[in-house]
Lab assay of single mutants.
Amino acid sequence: AVSDRLIGRKGVVMEAISPQNSGLVKVDGETWRATSGTVLDVGEEVSVKAIEGVKLVVEKLE
């Protein structure tokens, strides 16, 4: 699937994400809805860990 190529890629949070609410991330110039187990603020760099349906699962870049 086209989304599989995104796993491991870096992105930037465009709309804040929390465990309760999905947000938006931009990866390779495309905007995706994303979820995370932690709070991520706009502008934070993330990496794509998995894909669930049409949402990316991301975590903060260390």
Results as ranks from 00 to 15, higher is better:
A1H: 07
A1G: 07
V2D: 15
S3P: 09
D4Y: 02
D4S: 07
R5E: 15
R5L: 15
R5F: 15
L6E: 02
I7P: 03
I7N: 03
G8S: 04
G8H: 04
G8C: 04
G8D: 04
R9Y: 10
R9G: 04
R9W: 11
R9C: 05
K10A: 09
G11T: 02
V12M: 10
V13P: 00
M14C: 06
E15K: 05
E15A: 10
E15S: 09
E15Y: 06
A16D: 08
I17P: 02
S18I: 12
P19C: 08
P19V: 08
P19Y: 08
P19A: 09
Q20F: 11
S22P: 11
S22I: 12
L24W: 11
L24R: 07
V25Y: 00
V25S: 01
V27N: 00
V27A: 03
V27F: 03
V27P: 00
D28T: 07
D28S: 05
G29I: 07
G29L: 09
G29V: 07
G29P: 05
E30Y: 05
E30P: 03
E30A: 05
T31L: 14
T31I: 15
T31C: 06
W32D: 02
W32N: 03
A34N: 01
A34I: 01
T35I: 10
T35S: 12
S36K: 01
S36T: 03
G37N: 09
T38A: 13
T38F: 11
V39T: 15
V39E: 10
V39N: 10
V39G: 07
L40I: 12
D41M: 14
V42P: 12
V42F: 07
G43W: 09
G43L: 08
G43D: 10
E44D: 13
E44T: 15
E44I: 14
E45G: 10
E45R: 11
V46D: 00
S47G: 10
V48P: 01
K49A: 08
K49E: 05
A50N: 10
A50F: 07
I51C: 04
I51P: 01
I51R: 06
I51N: 04
G53R: 03
G53H: 06
G53C: 04
G53Q: 04
G53M: 04
G53A: 05
V54M: 08
V54F: 09
V54I: 10
V54R: 04
V54E: 15
K55M: 13
L56W: 01
L56M: 07
L56N: 00
L56E: 01
V57T: 05
V58F: 01
V58S: 01
V58Y: 00
V58I: 03
V58C: 05
V58E: 00
V58H: 00
V58D: 01
E59R: 05
K60R: 13
K60Y: 05
K60D: 03
L61S: 07
L61V: 13
L61R: 08
E62A: 15
